[in-house]
Design a protein around this nucleic acid. Structure first.
Lengths: 82, 82
DNA sequence: CTGATATATACGCTGTAGAGAATATTTTTA
DNA sequence: TAAAAATATTCTCTACAGCGTATATATCAG
């Protein structure tokens, strides 16, 4: 599944979906990443002050990667624009 | 162009490539984003403490978006692995 | 080579993430 | 709906990003 994310909220939402589909609790994910459950919570809720390190650590634990690309890729489907 | 980024260094590198292809200096990008040239420099150099807000602001200014996806998409081509 | 432009670093200051450790809420499930 | 599990929030503390400002270093053009 590919999640387009342009804001910290969207990033957080993508991570949350992924964590859930992996059947992990925030605490379990925290254990894997040496981050507190509270930190995972903040990240998933899109706190824009979150550090890149935190994002990267969580992506590793969830086996995710990010792709940086041109915007205007305007959605294979119109729905992705909203 | 799609840049795979798994680390803050790779994120920074992708942004730098993009900024350069847009013929913008760090100062000019800083002006667009209300970030200092020094902050752009730090981001591009992959400082892991950089805030998500900073990343997002720069991506907006460069008309970039990110896609969060499964790792192991292992490279359409083997080169992308390195 | 030299001046111009671009990028990296430094200092002091303010703001806030994330830590440990709890607790308050919300959501799930028996 | 009661107990359990998950998530959100709070407290104090430490670390460090990003700010303004300035300068040092690279990089590039003439």
């Amino acid at each position: 599944m590919e999640q387009i994310a342009r804001t910290s909220k969207q990033i957080g939402a993508a991570l949350r979906r992924r964590r859930r589909s992996a059947s992990l609790s925030q605490s379990e994910l925290g254990a894997k990443t040496n981050l507190r459950q509270a930190t995972i919570s903040a990240l998933e809720n899109g706190q824009p002050g979150t550090k890149l390190r935190t994002l990267v650590d969580v992506m590793v634990a969830l086996d995710l990667e990010m792709v940086v690309r041109d915007r205007s890729k305007a959605g294979e489907t119109i729905e992705n624009m909203f």
